[in-house]
């Protein structure tokens, strides 16, 4: 479980300290905040739910807002499942393990799974994913109600840890050119779409941007590379 003291895990823990403070301010009780952490796990979905509940929104409206923000889970899980399973892995096990997928665990999986022998990959992911969830649940339990002890300069700078970590680690682990293209398009399209279509921005940027990246790689870059290597072979 060395993964749990790694840089991404530590960064995520600071985010959960922030979530504890946010939940406290929004009038969520300690046990409700704990239940949210273990049952929802993904931090953006929790923040949205807390915000909606604090504003007194109807349960159906809460469901809609959270579920729209969580569609990204589907391609995230789908992209690591083929690497995680072997022929004997039962589907129920993958369904259970998928609960522990959120951005940090996803990045960890695409970084490390390839170095683990295939028959141990589900165990490896379970060890990291479940420990990470339980550790952060404990953090919420302990830190709930502690006054924001950080001065704004420090809490502001700490807030920056998460996005910068994602930027660097996802680029560093990109093994396919199409992933790098999708990375660049996503970074640009995310904020742009937020201005144009604030409700579905991430979906447009993700599905549209990812598709453009795939098409460019498949029909522009790959044929060109193939043509070049073809010419090289003839010489």
């Amino acid at each position: 479980m060395r993964g749990i003291t790694s840089l991404p895990a530590l960064i995520l823990m600071t985010s959960f300290v922030g979530f504890s403070a946010f939940a406290f301010e929004a009038g969520i009780t300690r046990s409700e905040a704990i239940f949210m952490t273990i049952s929802i796990w993904a931090l953006p979905a929790k923040m949205i739910l807390v915000g909606m509940m604090a504003s007194g929104a109807h349960v159906a409206a809460c469901f809609l807002a959270v579920t729209l923000s969580s569609i990204r889970m589907m391609p995230m899980v789908a992209s690591i499942v083929p690497e995680m399973r072997n022929e004997k892995t039962p589907t129920w096990l993958l369904l259970v393990l998928s609960h522990f997928v959120a951005i940090t665990a996803w990045v960890f999986a695409i970084q490390r799974l390839k170095d683990v022998p295939r028959q141990y990959r589900t165990t490896f992911f379970a060890g990291f994913g479940i420990t990470l969830t339980l550790t952060n649940t404990l953090i919420v339990a302990v830190c709930y109600g502690l006054v924001e002890a950080f001065p704004p300069v420090v809490s502001g700078a700490l807030f920056m840890l998460t996005p910068v970590y994602f930027l660097a680690s996802i680029w560093a682990t990109a093994r396919h050119l199409v992933v790098k293209l999708a990375f660049i398009i996503g970074v640009v399209a995310g904020p742009l779409m937020a201005l144009v279509a604030p409700d579905f921005d991430v979906l447009y940027a993700g599905i549209g941007g990812g598709t453009v990246a795939y098409l460019v790689e498949r029909f522009v870059i790959r044929p060109r590379k193939a043509a070049q290597s073809g010419v090289a072979n003839e010489r």
């Binding site: 391609p75 992209s79 990812g210 598709t211």
Partner: peptide, 19 residues
């Protein structure tokens, strides 16, 4: 899977850039 990877990456990066 290549396409799914591209969509997942673009989604995560859109969330990140918005942060």
């Amino acid at each position: 899977l290549q396409w799914v990877r591209a969509v997942a990456t673009a989604l995560v990066m859109a969330v990140t850039a918005k942060l």
